[in-house]
Amino acid sequence: MDMKQMKKLVLASASPRRRELLAQIGLTPLIEPSTLEEKVTSSIPEAVVSELSSQKAQDVAKHQEPGTLVIGADTVVAMDQQILLKPVSHEDAYRMISMLQGRDHQVYTGVTLIYCGQTEKKVKTFVEKTDVTLYPMSEEEIKTYAFSEEPMDKAGAYGIQGNFAAFVKGIDGDYNNVVGLPVGRVFQEIKGMLE
């Protein structure tokens, strides 16, 4: 079986960044965000993103026809194993950026792929980790960024692909993972599932 036999590709996420990343590698998914209330039973970043990506994918895969492949994903930023979610306010964004500036942190994305076959589902979950190092930021730079609109819908209160790129010293791992989806690995895993 190959990619052409996949009748439908569904992204269980409303993230415009994930949709753009998939489009970049030639995949055009239907967008069907999960409406499930997320439940987390762990505080370990890898376990959290695995669990949440799986919950989202399972929720959306329940009502798909055979031949559909569902992608569920969840991204968190962690520093010293402490998870930084999306900021709830500009003040919260300021707190997070203040913690991250001048230091190293990790971005974890959990991805769950579910291929709905005629009789059973194939399921694969994996986690991609990227290390990010930031330059030191002045009080003014932190404030200006935190009180802009850019950090508000992003884990860890920043988008590497936006204005925040000015403060990224280096990354070790997949850049796209930091944007929200390690598409190279996603593509390879889908190919492996459909062989």
Rank of each mutant, 00 (worst) to 15 (best):
M6L: 15
L9D: 01
L11S: 06
S15H: 03
P16A: 13
R18E: 06
R18M: 06
E20L: 12
I31D: 12
P33Q: 05
S34I: 11
T35Y: 07
K39S: 06
S43R: 07
E51P: 06
D59P: 02
V60K: 03
V60A: 13
A78D: 04
M79W: 04
I83W: 02
L84D: 00
D92I: 00
A93V: 01
R95K: 14
S98N: 07
L100H: 03
Q101K: 15
Q101Y: 08
H105R: 01
H105M: 06
T109W: 01
T109M: 00
G110P: 05
V111C: 09
C116T: 10
K121A: 09
K124D: 10
T125A: 08
T125W: 08
T130E: 11
D131N: 10
S138D: 08
E139V: 08
E140M: 11
E140S: 14
E141Q: 15
K143R: 15
A146H: 05
A155I: 10
A157E: 08
A157Q: 09
A157H: 05
N163T: 06
A166I: 01
G170D: 04
D174G: 07
N176Y: 15
P182C: 05
P182I: 02
V183W: 05
V186W: 04
E189S: 08
G192D: 10
E195S: 13
